[in-house]
Amino acid sequence: MYLSKEVKEEIFAKHGKGKNDTGTAEGQIALFTYRINHLSGHLKTNRKDFNTERSLVMLVGKRRALLDYLIKKDVLRYRAIVKELGLRK
């Protein structure tokens, strides 16, 4: 599997408050970004995989909702996570 327990802990340790803190918006956004990048790579080689395409669109929507929540809650945290993950150009 592409997303092992160790990879998840590493993502949450880097972007969240700790490796076991899976509830922070930053940690979830980072995890969604990792999954989106993986699914995008899969879709480049498998263009007709519509189930994966739908999953990708749903993940992008979830990430967008979390980013909207974060911008309303704390703009500085929003700017930090966007800059750290490179979501905007």
Rank of each mutant, 00 (worst) to 15 (best):
M1H: 14
Y2S: 13
S4D: 13
S4A: 08
K5D: 14
E6L: 08
E6M: 04
V7W: 11
V7L: 15
V7P: 08
E9Y: 11
I11F: 00
I11W: 00
I11Q: 00
F12V: 02
A13T: 08
H15D: 12
H15K: 07
G16E: 01
G16C: 01
G16M: 03
K17N: 09
G18C: 10
K19W: 10
N20L: 11
N20H: 10
T22H: 15
T22L: 14
T22M: 12
G23L: 10
T24Q: 08
T24S: 10
T24Y: 02
T24E: 03
A25W: 03
A25E: 09
E26M: 05
E26K: 03
G27T: 00
Q28F: 06
Q28N: 15
I29E: 02
A30M: 01
L31S: 01
F32E: 12
F32Q: 10
T33P: 00
T33K: 11
Y34W: 12
I36L: 08
N37Y: 02
H38R: 07
H38G: 02
H38P: 00
L39S: 02
S40I: 08
G41N: 04
H42R: 07
H42T: 12
L43W: 00
K44Q: 14
K44M: 15
T45V: 13
T45N: 12
T45F: 06
T45W: 05
N46T: 11
R47D: 09
R47Y: 13
R47A: 15
R47F: 13
K48E: 13
K48V: 07
F50C: 05
F50E: 10
T52P: 04
T52W: 06
E53A: 13
E53M: 13
E53I: 06
E53W: 07
E53Y: 11
R54W: 09
R54N: 12
R54T: 15
R54G: 02
L56T: 04
L56I: 02
L56K: 01
V57G: 00
V57K: 14
M58H: 14
L59F: 05
V60M: 15
G61M: 13
R63M: 11
R63K: 12
R64F: 07
R64M: 11
R64I: 02
R64V: 04
A65W: 05
L67S: 01
L67N: 06
D68R: 06
D68L: 05
Y69D: 06
Y69S: 02
L70E: 00
I71W: 04
K72G: 09
D74R: 02
D74L: 01
V75P: 08
V75M: 09
L76I: 13
L76Q: 14
R77Y: 00
R77V: 03
Y78R: 03
Y78E: 02
R79A: 05
R79S: 04
R79K: 15
I81G: 00
I81T: 03
I81D: 00
V82Y: 02
V82H: 05
K83V: 07
K83D: 14
K83Q: 14
E84H: 08
E84M: 06
L85K: 09
G86D: 06
L87Y: 10
L87C: 09
L87V: 03
R88P: 05
